[in-house]
Computed example of a mutant assay.
Amino acid sequence: MTIYNKLLLLGLFAVSPLSQGATGIAFIHGTGKQTNALDDYWTSEFVDSVRQGISSPANYSVINCDFDQYMWEEAAAGCLVNQLTTFIDAKGIDSLIMLTHSNGGNIVRWVLSNPTWDSRYPKVIAATSRVIALAPSSAGTPLADAVNQGNSFETSLGWLLGYNSNAVKQQQVSSMSYYNGTWLNGTANRPALSKPFEVVVGSDVDSAVWDSDSYCAGYQYQVALETTQNWLDDCSDGFLECSSQGAAGTVWFTDKQLTQGQEPLSHQQSRRACFNLDSLIRNHI
């Protein structure tokens, strides 16, 4: 073989897909035991739009785990890393973007913060390039406290939180304060997370019956979240106060700064294709 042919062969090998890594995105749901998060949590409209932001849109995974459990449980973090590992191996992913919502951000932070807890964690951490956390419950919510006290919130928030699950207990304000001070990184006075943790904050809820924007992601949910917002700070998405959402990592933006028409994102809307949220994420990645 001539020197020219050898160099040509080496050049072809250097750009061969087999020698290159791949970017992938994983959609990680919040509280709840999911078996079909694509349809029941995110919707295809949102997922199919966001994944166009990576070079190979087929490199995506929608996680389905039991996030009604404490974040360190096998059904939660264990399930998450198992599904991510399968995805990484199947697609040759070496640049993993995790897109999380609500309590999903806590489970991801658990994995990133505790690499020696489980032998499966380091591979996932090494492949991860960044986390985009939509309305993460990083400092918990007073509504979780209310649910565990068995008052009227237990009925009104069943669709969002479930009923007295370990995940709800975990998201009590005092519980998250303890976890943030001991086991979790990324909050004030704690070590930084090993990967970027970029946060989108939802700051308000609109439920005016005459406003078409109130119907995005389901009008009935906006009405419920407008009600629960009365027990939270003025800046909240109906489930989480802004301070909780921004407690870990770095705030990428607060809804009205970038959304179409400067519309707020309720906790329900921050996982749907509302007010160009999907295109903002797509362009960002």
Rank of each mutant, 00 (worst) to 15 (best):
A127M: 10
Q257W: 03
G158W: 01
G140R: 04
I25L: 09
Q170S: 06
L12M: 15
F239A: 09
C216H: 14
T250F: 01
A188F: 00
P264Q: 06
T182E: 07
T228P: 05
D233E: 11
D39W: 01
V111E: 02
S177C: 02
S61W: 00
C274R: 12
C65G: 10
G158F: 00
N276M: 09
G186Y: 02
A77G: 07
L134G: 09
Y179F: 13
L10C: 09
Q69E: 12
S152R: 03
T182D: 13
N5P: 01
R271P: 01
G186L: 01
Q34R: 13
A192S: 12
M1G: 10
L193Y: 07
Q220V: 15
V108I: 06
Y179I: 06
Q34L: 10
I107M: 07
A167F: 05
G32H: 02
I54N: 15
L258H: 03
S156V: 15
V205W: 06
W110N: 11
S119G: 06
R271V: 00
T86E: 15
N189H: 03
A22C: 05
V251E: 12
G218S: 08
G181N: 11
L10K: 10
G21Y: 00
A139R: 14
H284K: 15
L232D: 11
L80S: 06
L18K: 12
L134A: 12
F46Q: 05
C65L: 08
G162Y: 03
S244A: 10
D40Q: 09
G158I: 13
N64V: 05
L193C: 14
L134T: 05
A217L: 06
G140E: 12
K256L: 04
Q245G: 04
L265T: 04
T228L: 04
V111N: 04
H29E: 05
S244L: 13
F67H: 07
P122Q: 13
F153W: 14
A58F: 00
F253H: 04
A146T: 09
Q149L: 15
S203N: 12
Q257D: 15
D204P: 05
G202V: 03
V168Y: 04
L157V: 14
K195E: 10
Q229K: 15
Y215R: 12
A14T: 14
G181R: 09
H101L: 14
L8T: 07
E154T: 15
P264H: 07
K123E: 11
S113P: 05
Q69W: 01
A248P: 04
P264W: 14
L18F: 08
G24K: 00
T23F: 00
V201G: 04
I88K: 08
N106T: 14
Y70H: 06
V200K: 13
E45K: 10
L8I: 09
G202Q: 13
